[in-house]
Simulated scan of single mutants.
Amino acid sequence: MNFTRSITLALLVSAAAPALADGPVKPREAAAEAASFQRDRQDILAMAGNFKVRFDMRETTSWRPDYKPIDAKTSGGHEVVRVIEDSGKVIRLQHLLVVDADGEPMVIKHWRQDWVYEPESVLVYDAKGRWKLEEVPQRMRASRWSQTVYQVDDSPRYAGWGQWTDEGGIRRWRSNWTLRPLARRDAIRNPVYDRYLGINRHSPTPTGWIHWQDNIKEGMVDGKIVPFVQESVLNTYEKFDGFDVKAADDYWARTKGYWAAVRTAWDKAIADNRGVTVQEEAQTGTVISGRLLEIGNEIVDGKIKESAAIAEARAKISGATRSSLAQR
């Protein structure tokens, strides 16, 4: 082998080395594995609390000469995050927004994130209005967690899996590449792209945590999916108690039974079909999302009993998922 070829091969091996970080986790002694598992759990559970939130969304690099990135968009608010289940290897976190409505607090049920240790499968976004259960490769399960994100009505949004690591003195969970439907901020504009392909990162900070999204916004051109623009999203959660936290806790105390039944109804639809199909809607996520949220508010206001609310929600979910399947 000549000198030039040796150098070339060495450079290729060096360039490929970072990909090893996404390979199977090396086996560890039982004590080290147990300690790592507990630390992972602590980082996930630390995302619960009361927060001031800042959302910073920026289209950065255009991947097409005919596309101009839109202006950066920033927003914020107050958010309560509560642990609604912790069974060791499964942790569910419910987000609740608290906004000011003419001087009175208004609670809006927000997204939910479910964490599962060493998952066998994840519920991934497949195409417009369709999610499917996808197997996690056997060799990639050990010591890893999946994160599944659900929309405001507990319908699925996206899912990924990855490992919690320490890099540069920073704890971080990084997902695999995940496909996602458009967020409301984009969907209501009817843009040329119709999905995101992205990597999600979560890191604890001294004052809270961050969720960083690295997104490729994609769409169809001449029958092919192509990239339009790169987007960077940084959601910052800073610990903060200076808002009406009680309003969020009161809302959840009154509606948690209803939302537990809603989750169960979605889980049944997913299990019956190894996934789920439901029509998307720009303003609310799915065509039934608005009504499911209204029902929750009606429970709080005493306008409907929980049993009737659950019956209506089950019928809505069953009808929406059946009708969407029939249209395929």
Rank of each mutant, 00 (worst) to 15 (best):
N2R: 12
N2M: 08
T4C: 08
L12K: 12
L12G: 11
S14T: 13
A16T: 09
A17T: 11
A19D: 05
L20G: 07
D22W: 14
P24N: 11
V25I: 12
R28F: 05
E29S: 12
A30M: 10
S36L: 14
S36C: 07
Q42C: 11
M47R: 15
M47L: 11
A48W: 11
A48F: 13
F51D: 13
F55V: 13
D56N: 15
T61D: 14
D66G: 09
P69E: 09
I70M: 12
S75A: 14
E79H: 09
V83W: 12
D86T: 10
S87G: 12
V90R: 15
I91W: 07
I91A: 05
R92H: 12
A101L: 07
E104P: 00
I108D: 01
I108G: 00
H110L: 01
Q113V: 06
W115D: 02
L123H: 03
V124F: 00
G129T: 02
E134W: 00
E134Q: 10
E135T: 10
E135L: 03
R141I: 01
S143E: 14
R144V: 04
Y150R: 07
V152Q: 06
D153F: 01
R157F: 10
Y158K: 03
G160F: 04
Q163K: 13
W164D: 05
W164P: 06
T165C: 02
D166P: 00
D166F: 06
I170N: 06
R171M: 02
W173L: 09
S175I: 09
L179C: 05
L182K: 02
R184T: 10
D186S: 05
A187K: 03
I188A: 03
N190K: 13
Y193M: 01
L197G: 10
R201S: 06
R201L: 09
P204T: 04
P206F: 06
G208Y: 07
W209K: 00
I210K: 10
H211I: 02
W212L: 15
D214P: 00
N215P: 01
E218Q: 11
G219R: 04
V221H: 05
K224E: 11
I225R: 08
V229E: 02
E231P: 00
E231S: 03
S232A: 08
T236V: 07
Y237R: 02
Y237P: 03
E238R: 05
K239I: 00
D241G: 09
G242Y: 00
F243A: 01
A253Y: 00
W259Q: 01
T264K: 10
A265S: 07
W266R: 03
D267I: 01
R274A: 14
T277K: 05
V278E: 06
E280V: 06
Q283A: 14
G290C: 04
G290P: 03
R291G: 08
R291D: 13
L292H: 10
L293G: 09
I295M: 07
I295A: 08
K303Q: 11
K305P: 01
E312W: 09
R314M: 03
K316Y: 15
S318I: 05
S318T: 15
A320T: 06
A320P: 04
R322M: 14
S323I: 06
Q327D: 14
